[in-house]
Design a protein around this nucleic acid. Structure first.
Lengths: 171, 171
DNA sequence: CTGTGGTTGAGCAGATTGCTCAACCGGAGA
DNA sequence: TCTCCGGTTGAGCAATCTGCTCAACCACAG
């Protein structure tokens, strides 16, 4: 395998990939041909890399782009939990059964779990928070409502950084 | 009132939209024609709704699909912070200047801010955490490493719920 | 020097898109 | 009940794009 601008394997994204991703970020519905022109690459290259990114899992599921607010869940809250470590798996499964639980992380430190939940309104959130708290194995939980997004989700800065040394691989 | 392709306004997603989104989730590169067949809708409908979803902001930026790990940042951590409320905006801006800060929420409760950060490795994380802590206005911060994802990010359950009363309009 | 792998340009049949039009259909309002 | 309105549908068409294959290049590793 080469290293200079390699369609690398394993999950790394090189500068060219990053440029493709940035272009797609600006124009999600762009065709391969459009990227070809914008990036000055050949269509073959664009398609090969794009396919690879999609296949190698560098791109998460499409649903990540869906805005919960548009779906009818304008409220977001974070629930921190302390749980019985022996029942961690069980708790994870139980949380997974709650549709409004969007994601759950196991954390280091004195908080065991962090769950991000969405809700239709305050009552809904109250109900959901209660449901989380009631999960067997959960010893304590605390719910914080997301009041505003100081920094909305973004990866662009990192993509731009990755795109900088165009053609170069990571050191 | 809006007239331009108004399936529903404001950002609500109806059952048909949800079905389209679910289909796209299964096959992100699906063509409109493919969706047409899979969903039993006309091509016109699919295209009109898809365009609307894209334009009305029901779909977040493409970059949300990019996996930080593939980008070279396999570590995720959550940093909770208490800040000088008067300097909240200032702090937000400062956090936004740090590329590894993927998103920041202002929270209710005794924790003011929750930042999600990604890092290349432990050292990198340590450096970034330090940088957050050093932001003027930040009084206290605590970093927790995301050890594992008990529930990986997903919206499918909510989409399925929304898709259920197919043919029914928003409530 | 040679093998390897990524990139490029070319080509082609077939699929897809963007757009427009007319006809339908059900609900809201007159 | 009748009429208007907006969403849905089917159809059609030119232009574009995709999927795939090939041969030629090029830089690097061995």
């Amino acid at each position: 395998m080469s290293r200079l601008s390699t369609v690398n394997h394993g999950g790394a994204v090189d500068a060219t990939d990053a440029r493709i991703l940035l272009a797609l970020d600006e124009e999600p519905r762009a065709t391969a041909v459009a990227l070809t022109e914008r990036l000055g690459l050949s269509r073959n290259t664009v398609q090969a890399r794009w396919s690879r990114l999609e296949r190698d899992g560098a791109l998460g599921p499409f649903a990540r782009r869906v805005d919960p607010a548009a779906l009818g869940y304008p409220l977001t809250a974070f629930v921190t939990m302390r749980v019985d470590q022996l029942r961690l798996t069980e708790v994870g499964a139980a949380l997974g059964d709650i549709p409004e639980v969007v994601e759950v992380y196991g954390l280091s430190g004195d908080i065991d779990l962090l769950a991000r939940v969405v809700a239709a309104d305050a009552d809904d959130l109250y109900r959901i928070a209660g449901r989380l708290h009631a999960v067997p194995g959960v010893e304590r939980s605390s719910t914080s409502l997301a009041m505003n997004q100081l920094v909305p989700h973004r990866l662009t800065p990192l993509l731009e950084r990755a795109a900088e040394g165009t053609g170069r691989r990571r050191g």
